[in-house]
Amino acid sequence: MRNTFIKTLTKIAEQRPDVWLVCGDLGYSVLEEFATRFPERYINAGVAEQNMAGMAAGLAMAGKTVFLYSIGNFPTFRCLEQIRNDVCAHRASVKVVAVGAGYAYGPQGYTHHALEDVAVMGALPHMEVFVPCDPIETEAATHAISESGAPAYLRLSRSGEPKLHTAALSDARAPVMLRKGGDVTILACGPVVQDCLAAADLLAAEGVVVQVATLPCVKPLDEAFVQAAADASRLLVTVEEHVLWGGLHASVAGCLAVHERRPRILGIGVSDEIRASAAAGDRAALLKRAGLDAASIAARIRSAAGAAKAR
């Protein structure tokens, strides 16, 4: 994902002299090509995120389109007020790009897990939030935010994520139903979409047919899509590599709160208890611990789908 991002950005920068890349002293083996090709538009701000974000806002106020690149929590929480005041209040064209979404930095521990970022970035005015599930969505989202002229948050995992789409996307803001059919629908974002597809396979083997949709843009939420999915489903399931408060689940539930026909909405994400307790392990192990692996997702859906039928 991060390689697709930087390749796409480099291509955009060839055509767009206003595009700058600012990093917080990281990006080894990722950012070098951009830095070498556009040295006058590449800044390593050092380990100083508050200045990095405020300075990015200043660059944007002078007409630049600025991509801020760092690890999950650093360009978001460390400089949250700069993002809120200097970037969002001024609708400055600054794109916060965080790598290491969710549990991507597995064994590195709590400080490097980004599990509340969607909620926090999404709460800010003018901020669009993109959570791509694969390189194809990453490419589309990078193009979309480079053209928006407004603040955006792009949440990336790491590298090696498989392509879940079969063709390029024309609209990074539009959800896509990756698997169709059945009256149980999973709405998911980020690389856990892959685990949702695997969970759907497990359930299909038992005769439970599940649809799976990916929502690369969490804010603004495509409400019409969510409402249509609700109309077509007896059970709606949201899955996200994020805490359950303030992310995809909260947005979907909020969108449907006033919808006439509302199915049960099962939220699968990271609980406070799991979030607050430290554990080592790679991403797969941590996803399993949080109940976000395919088997756990399938088990939750199996149980909820049975209850939904019995109702």
Partner: peptide, 13 residues
């Protein structure tokens, strides 16, 4: 503590 980083970005541009 917000103004100076913004001014720095402007000067850089």
């Amino acid at each position: 503590g917000h103004g100076l980083p913004i001014a720095v970005g402007l000067a850089l541009a």
